[in-house]
Design a binder for these strands. Structure first.
Length: 759
DNA sequence: GTAGGGTTAG
């Protein structure tokens, strides 16, 4: 017996384990409880395969308490919760009570299922030893409700330091700073773990000053304490502070471990400085410790964020068997960051297991790289599989994708999904909803979300303001500005851009001037808004004067406003001046040529108009082809010029014909520039916006109930001709038609447009 | 056999 005992202690590999097993069989000891328990213990230590371990277990004809307990330990180490409970049932039938020491292990390794052990203990009225008590309390600290943990804590006849530490970190885990603090002060005796828990707790709630205060006050510090403080800084984006503290740690002659290394590496990635990380890893390697997968993943991420994708991929490939979810996710994010969606998608489909972050990475990746529709498809796929619940991060990406598409039906569906699945949104999430509703033209809902928010930040205000601006609701935007001041929320440069744009789109000259005057240090964008405001209200000379007197060089956008206004107000002199400035600033922009040409045309100066068109052709300035789209039944219907691919194409062109007839009857064909004049074949390319948009409007008319609000969404500027057409149709059909162009809405009612744009 | 620190998504 002692001979085998000696061998058992020496065993380091699975091969040696199997040799011992064979020797036991030879000596007919293999089915004795003592040896079976030993073998299972070794299986646990060496991470042997479940099939082999189970075989060993069944060697014992009537497994005793030790065999069973070791087997429970093995299962719980493997995360096989079902097997753990099955064995428990078996033991109950055989009337075998597990030894106390397995309970803490089982509770810890069973995750959320740990609660079943508490139930089990309660049901059997088992006496808890101090370890079991601590483990049960630790379970509630981790998974909640924290009140249950507190109850157990209060009921304890005696409390060890470990119990105090558990409940304190439990409160930190649930963000209850006050109670953690209170218990810390009450605690009769503290150790380094207690102090470290306070440091990391404060770091977790982003209160780094308090964290540092505790860190400086603690009577002794372990490496873990240093790590807590350094990673606290790193987590909160304070890379510089993290590195400084790390240097301080080194100056004390302390040895960093791998966790230190992870924090320093991630700080380096924020600073874009791989050098320090490389030297640190080298130093650790010299000590003989090879960087573990945490360090390697941090390095992977660092190289990816510093733009060295090859190095990142090399580490990823080198990790081989050690690759885990986090490494896969980091690599996917690396690809989406540089816009390589194909590679990201390839990895995503290859990965053996996915978690919420994997889905979030790929969905956000699509959303950020202009693939909004794909982002939504992936989201649908995610929720269809039902094994993972989307969280706020998922929803923010999906909501913003709906916003970018201007897809209100989808947006409503997503918002519904939020309430049905009780996904609570933070400020960030609510802001994304405001953005989405604004982009979809539903200002009522955007405002409702805003008003129902418990806390708002400056971005909440800016998002809603920008929405009002796009919708031409100047008064509402100004109201929001005074609300901001009432609530002592400091407006920033974006706020003022929104407010001025709103004034501009609703013709509020005096109000806009007053706001502009109140800006402490206006930048070029604020000047641009003012030029636009003067232009839109027809004060072109004032606009010109502002341009001449502004303290910085005007950019193309500024002249653009003036040029468009020059067309509307038929100011050939200013039009020529600004157009020539624009030809210098952005020679490739065809719009400027078209505008100047139209200015000449409207004054009957056809030769000049043709000359400019010729200039445009000679310069090879082509107009990009465009399309419009309409959302209907959760789908996006896309229209391009001359398009007959839609299945309702025949009906669409029929409606288009009816529109034409109605307009003729109403006498709208007199104007040469009217929408439905027949265009020459070669002109068609220029008219692309008009045509695709008309198809979209026709489709919208076709599918909507009489009297319903029609929503046309498009990604082009609403051209002048089409604008007129919609005005007329809204009048004739007695319908409200909402059209979105690049970033603003036009609400047509009774032949009038809500915006103050010049048409 | 109890308690403190780690990498990824917005």
């Amino acid at each position: 017996m002692s001979h085998f005992n000696f061998i058992a202690k020496q065993i380091r590999s699975q091969n040696q384990l199997k040799q011992l097993h064979a020797q036991l069989i030879q000596n007919s000891l293999h089915n004795q409880d003592f040896w079976v328990a030993q073998l299972i213990h070794l299986c646990t230590r060496l991470h042997a395969a479940p099939r082999y371990t189970t075989q060993v277990f069944y060697l014992a004809p009537q497994p005793d308490v030790f065999v069973c307990s070791n087997m429970l330990k093995y299962h719980s180490q493997m995360g096989a919760t079902n097997e753990v409970f099955a064995l428990f049932d078996q033991m109950q039938e055989a009337n075998v009570k597990p030894v106390a020491f397995v309970y803490p292990l089982l509770i810890k390794s069973s995750g959320k299922a740990g609660i079943q052990f508490h139930a089990h203990l309660l049901k059997r009225g088992l006496n808890y030893d101090k370890y079991i008590q601590n483990a049960v309390m630790g379970f509630y600290c981790k998974y909640g409700p924290i009140e249950s943990a507190r109850e157990l804590f209060d009921m304890m006849p005696e409390r060890t330091i470990a119990d105090w530490n558990s409940i304190i970190s439990g409160y930190w885990n649930w963000g209850n700073e006050v109670e953690a603090q209170k218990l810390f002060d009450l605690m009769p005796e503290k150790n380094v773990i207690t102090w470290t828990a306070m440091v990391s707790g404060y770091a977790k709630v982003n209160d780094l000053e308090s964290a540092r205060r505790y860190f400086d006050k603690m009577p002794e510090k372990s490496t873990v304490s240093w790590n807590a403080m350094i990673s606290g800084y790193a987590h909160n984006g304070l890379a510089q502070e993290a590195i400084e503290l790390f240097n301080e740690m080194m100056s004390f002659g302390l040895t960093p471990d791998e966790t230190t290394c992870v924090a320093v590496v991630s700080s380096c990635s924020m600073l874009g400085d791989p050098g320090l990380a490389e030297s640190l890893v080298k130093r650790i390697a010299e000590k003989g410790t090879c960087p573990n997968h945490f360090v390697k993943t941090a390095l992977l991420d660092m190289y990816a964020k510093c733009g060295n994708l090859n190095m990142a991929r090399k580490i990823f490939d080198g990790l081989g068997e050690c690759r885990n979810l986090v490494t896969w996710n980091a690599m996917i994010a690396a690809y989406t960051r540089v816009g390589d969606l194909a590679s990201a998608m390839g990895l995503f489909h290859q990965m053996p297991k996915k978690n919420v972050i994997s889905w979030n990475s790929i969905i956000a990746g699509c959303s950020q790289n202009g693939e909004s529709a794909m982002a939504i498809e992936l989201f649908k796929e995610m929720i269809a599989s039902k094994d993972l619940k989307p969280d706020e991060v998922t929803m923010v990406s999906v909501i913003s994708a709906c916003g970018h598409l201007g897809a209100l039906e989808l947006g409503n569906w997503v918002a519904n999904y939020l309430t049905e699945n009780q996904i609570r949104l933070s400020i960030l999430g609510c802001n994304s909803l405001i953005f989405m509703y604004s982009k979809c033209g539903s200002m009522r809902k955007a405002r409702k979300i805003f008003e129902e928010m418990e806390n708002r930040d400056v971005i909440s205000y800016n998002t809603l303001t920008t929405g009002f601006a796009a919708y031409g609701s100047g008064a509402e935007a100004l109201e929001l500005l005074s609300k901001m001041k009432q609530e002592s929320m400091q407006p920033d440069r974006i706020t003022y851009i929104g407010i001025l744009t709103a004034c501009s789109h609703s013709g509020l000259l005096e109000e806009g001037k007053a706001v502009f005057k109140s800006i402490k240090d206006p930048d070029i964008d604020h000047y641009a808004c003012m030029v636009d405001l003067y232009s839109r209200v027809g004060k072109l000379d004032e606009a010109k004067r502002l341009i001449d007197n502004m303290p910085m060089h005007p950019h193309a956008g500024i002249y653009g406003s003036l040029l468009n206004a020059s067309r509307v107000h038929k100011r050939i002199d200013l039009g020529e001046f600004t157009a020539n400035k624009l030809f210098e600033l952005e020679p490739e922009n065809s719009g400027n040529y078209v505008l100047l040409s139209n200015i000449y045309a409207s004054a009957g100066r056809w030769e000049d108009a043709d000359r400019i068109r010729g200039l445009m052709k000679a310069g090879g300035v082509a107009k990009a082809t465009g399309w419009s789209w309409v959302e209907h039944g959760g789908k996006i219907h896309r229209f391009v010029v001359g398009d007959h691919s839609h299945k309702l194409s025949d009906d669409i062109y029929r409606v288009l014909g009816e529109m034409k007839k109605k307009m003729m009857v109403a006498g709208y064909m007199a104007d040469k520039s009217c929408v439905l004049r027949d265009v020459e074949e070669e002109e068609k390319e220029e008219m692309v916006g008009t045509h695709s948009e008309k198809l979209a409007v026709a489709f919208a008319l076709l599918i909507s109930e009489p009297g319903a609000v029609i929503r046309v969404v498009k990604n082009l500027r609403v051209c002048r001709d089409c604008h007129m057409a919609i005005k007329i149709i809204s009048h004739l059909e007695k319908r409200e038609i909402i059209v979105r162009d690049n970033n603003r809405f036009h609400c047509f009612r009774d032949g009038l447009c809500s915006c103050n744009d010049y048409w």
